[in-house]
Amino acid sequence: MKKSKAFWGFLVLALVIYAVVQGMISGGMLDLYYQNILIQMCINIMLAVSLHIVIGITGQFSIGHAGFMAVGAYISAIATMKLGLPLIVAILLGAVISALAGLLVGIPTLRLKGDYLAIATLGFAEIIRIIFLNVEYVGGAAGMVVTNMTTWTYAFVGVVITILVIANFTNSRHGRGCISIREDEIAADAMGINTTYYKVVAFTIGSFFAGIAGAIYAHNFFIIQPTTFNFLKSFDILIYVVLGGLGSLSGSAIAAIFLTLVSAYLANFPETRMIIYSVVLIIVMLYRPTGLMGTKEITSLFKFGKKGGSKV
């Protein structure tokens, strides 16, 4: 029962982190600026982990993740601002609609492979963005005003649930099915894995959590605009997953944390930030294309004699 040990370990760790941060907020040690960075960090971790299930686990190269984030953001904003629903309902609604969007996009596109899939997902994300740009109901290009309702607690609980669900998925026959597609699609198919089904499942789960991240993002910033969710945002998320290590959940989360801090530090020098990002990306791809962690997980560093890819 090693797996449940990892599970309880993760839960205890999460509680400790939450208690410490909440204590610091209550004690006035973290002002709004730092709280906002923490929330950003949580949102980015959710985005990274939700893309990790698509790229890292299933090996399907999607570069349109921001599109699903946009769906979650706009749907949840409509729910709270136009329909007056409570935030928690709005988040779930955003996530479900985003998952549906993922399903609709995934079924036709996931037949494509490699570069073609990448471009198709990028195309879909742009279409989603252009739709929001053209709908006056959500403010068009000017954007939509959204009340700030997100708290650190929402963001943190979102991260914990995202990680738990995706780790549980990965460590099951379903997750192994997805990994086998990443490793060798033809062999997976020959071994009885319904590859289309699992690709769509992974894509839909990824979209669901991107939707949650989008919903939490929407209620953290006073305004959402279509330009926020352009393909540069998709690239940002991609960078977390790739730098962290394709196939490593903890790697993508660590990369998200680290790069959020770097971004916050360089907030006043956005060009410098992008130059550093791109140089790091190129260097990592040239000299360590598996990313920093490869397919390894942080937990495997503590387990001696226990090897193997997908353990959390």
Partner: peptide
């Protein structure tokens, strides 16, 4: 290299 690595490098060069 893998196709993914090549594509990401290209994106990196573009941003740079």
């Amino acid at each position: 290299a893998t196709r993914i690595a090549a594509l990401i490098t290209a994106i990196g060069v573009s941003l740079l």
